[in-house]
């Protein structure tokens, strides 16, 4: 699993890659929360996430809640079918702001 942070048009893109599971989700959680501390527009690019489990979803939920509390923008982009399956089973597909691409996500915040 890797987590790469880049700046794009004033927003922060967090690119996750690999499996987000019980082993790797603590790092994802910490990375996202740190990012939200200093940035108020965060898009998580999930195009390279092959697998995400409940602990990974929990990290996303926590980041989402922090962003709402701070009034920041937090969105997911490029969510794979498998990841989408978990989000919809958890009925979080309607809670998160989910977009086809990071560009779409940023445009949505426009």
């Amino acid at each position: 699993m890797s987590l790469e942070i880049t700046e794009k048009d004033g927003a922060t893109i967090v690119a996750l890659a690999g499996d987000v599971d019980l082993q790797t989700s603590p790092a994802v959680r910490q990375g996202l929360l740190e990012c939200l501390e200093t940035h108020d527009q965060v898009v998580v690019d999930m195009s390279q996430v092959n697998y995400i489990d409940s602990s990974g979803v929990a990290s996303l939920v926590e980041a989402f809640q922090v962003s709402r509390k701070k009034g920041s923008f937090f969105a997911l982009a490029h969510v794979s079918t498998a990841a989408m399956r978990v989000l919809s089973l958890a009925r979080l597909d309607k809670v998160f702001s989910i977009h086809e691409s990071t560009e779409d996500a940023l445009a949505a915040n426009g």
Partner: peptide
């Protein structure tokens, strides 16, 4: 899982 939107507790539901 649906008791509240907060981290944790999803696994059994999934």
């Amino acid at each position: 899982d649906l008791d509240e939107v907060r981290p944790g507790g999803l696994g059994v539901h999934l």
